[in-house]
Design a protein around this nucleic acid. Structure first.
Length: 465
RNA sequence: GGUCCCUUCGUCUAUCGGUUAGGACAUCUGGUUUUCAACCAGGAAAGAGGGGUUCAACUCCCCUAGGGACUACCA
């Protein structure tokens, strides 16, 4: 039987980075085993679910490259099927109608015994003949004794006394299903074989097993993965930086880097730190998932990001750049800009951590002359350098082989005859060429710019000094 | 409160009874350099605490402490 995994977020907000990792694990596991990765929107809570949130989740997953198989399922759309199962359980005696009102339950909770135990419906064993003509919910008739045990691929064997579970509501008084019922029915109908989800659902695995057993369905394999915390060990929140997957897009991380970092957070394959998505798919296994929660570390993310920016193919980088730019609501790069960018990618990608760094470093090739130097770097263009530039320019004009190596040799020789360190000349030259010293290597820039453009920029500078 | 889960360097982690407890990020020191959020070399840094089991425990068991989840007609 083929493997089927699923990601089942509720559409009440953007795609949380923790949810994104859960989705990634499910996706990785399905892809690693030639199975299917399904997406189901848990929208049975009509109060809190919104279309905008659903779209945000789609967008987040797409950005991360976690493509799902089939159409996304809507849990709400399947409510009739859920009700059907609830009634089937009623018929088989695994569930019963409960006429207790919300007020009854609240009163119970407020009472002394309500502090300890969960609500025990008086209708559990009641004679149907005594039933009032009033709204009711359908509750599961949970076993009162025995032990419920599950085997979790991450947590191992976990068991509870059945008495721990209350008679949970399956169908609300308005006829809509609760989450507990809906997940089980949907996972069963969708043929889900492996449920990989946050360990906040661990106890639910026990509860849900009750329903599987009642229906005589096969219980899927569970894998409850620990949560992601902020760097202080507290629940990840806005305070720690970004919690939404899309925010990472806006910060300029490559999806490939996010997949790498997120996969490594809570999962490991020996000492491998930096890997491609193809490798992750090849290596991914449930046994590599850690049981302890992990903390989100931006410094490490940056390091992973840097590696992917260094190694990504040009077209991936360009696509990432365009995507980043659109996330900033800026005009996309023109064909001309892309062509220019491609010529300098080899020299700007090496020292960049994030996508915007690439843009900053490429400024010299993208900006048209003449341009003014940055305020902080204008000081390099002083009178001393003016003299140096005037003596250097004729030599530059005579260069026949305009290459990085030739240029560097020329500069070194020139610096020597001037009795200066190379930095005294190369550094201000950066300002001439790019307007700032925070730029790629002087010689890389000159080579990329070409002789004519270089000379023209020198001329521009001389004219303003 | 109850039930369940978790606990190796600051952080992410390797180890699956026998290792000088390894790697990565961060950090520190030195070097290199035309800027640096770059590079090179080196250093410091960990099994929460206490009991067992065993020839041998980070690894298995128990207790304690700390952290977390759940305890809805939310998902």
């Amino acid at each position: 039987m083929g493997i089927v995994t699923r990601f089942a977020p509720s559409p009440t907000g953007y795609l949380h980075i923790g949810g994104a990792r859960t989705a990634l694990f499910n996706w990785l596991y399905a892809r690693a085993n030639g199975g299917k990765f399904l997406l189901r929107i848990e929208d049975t809570d009509r109060e809190r679910s919104t279309d905008a949130a659903t779209q945000a989740i789609f967008e987040g997953l797409k950005w991360l490259g976690l493509n799902w198989d089939d159409e996304a399922y809507s849990q709400f759309a399947r409510k009739d099927r859920h009700a059907e199962i609830a009634h089937a359980m009623l018929g088989s005696g695994h569930a019963y109608k409960c006429y207790a009102t919300k007020e009854d339950i609240e009163a119970f909770r407020a009472s002394p015994e309500g502090k300890y135990g969960s609500f025990q419906s008086p209708w559990r064993g009641a004679d149907p003949a005594t039933a009032p003509d009033a709204p009711y919910v359908i509750r599961l008739k949970a076993p009162r004794d025995g032990v419920m045990e599950i085997t979790d691929e991450v947590q191992g064997r976990v068991k509870w006394k059945s008495a721990e579970f209350d008679d949970m509501i399956l169908l609300r008084s308005d006829g809509t299903p609760t989450y507990m019922l809906a997940v089980v029915v949907d996972d069963h109908d969708m043929g889900v074989t492996h449920i990989i989800r946050g360990d906040d659902h661990l106890i639910n695995a026990g509860r849900q097993s009750l329903i599987y057993h009642a229906m005589g369905w096969d219980v899927p394999v569970f894998a409850h993965i620990p949560l992601i915390f902020g760097d202080d060990g507290k629940k990840l929140s806005k305070r720690h930086g970004a919690t939404g997957a899309q925010e990472y897009r806006a910060m300029g991380y490559l999806p490939e880097a996010m997949r790498n970092y997120l996969a490594r957070l809570g999962w490991s394959h020996g000492d491998d730190e930096l890997f491609t998505t193809a490798q992750a798919i090849e290596w991914f296994d449930l046994s590599g998932i850690n049981k302890a929660p992990s903390r989100f570390d931006f410094k490490k993310l940056d390091n992973v990001s840097k590696h992917h920016i260094e190694t990504a193919p040009d077209d991936v980088l360009i696509a990432g750049l365009q995507d980043y730019i659109s996330s900033q609501d800026r005009e996309p790069l023109s064909e001309d800009a892309i062509e220019k960018l491609k010529t300098v990618l080899p020299i700007v990608r090496e020292r960049s951590k994030k996508l915007p760094d690439l843009l900053d470093k490429s400024r010299f090739i993208l900006q048209a002359r003449p341009f003014a130097p940055d305020e902080n770097d204008a000081k390099h263009l002083n009178s001393v350098f003016n003299g140096i530039l005037k003596r250097l320019t004729p030599q530059l004009a005579q260069v026949t082989t305009w290459s990085k190596e030739e240029l560097e040799t020329l500069f070194r020789d020139f610096a020597q005859t001037e009795g200066l360190g190379l930095g005294k000349i190369a550094q201000p030259m950066k300002v001439v060429l790019s307007g700032t010293t925070k730029s790629p290597s002087t010689f890389d820039m000159m080579a990329a710019l070409g002789k004519d453009e270089t000379l023209a920029r020198i001329k521009d500078t001389l004219a303003t000094m």
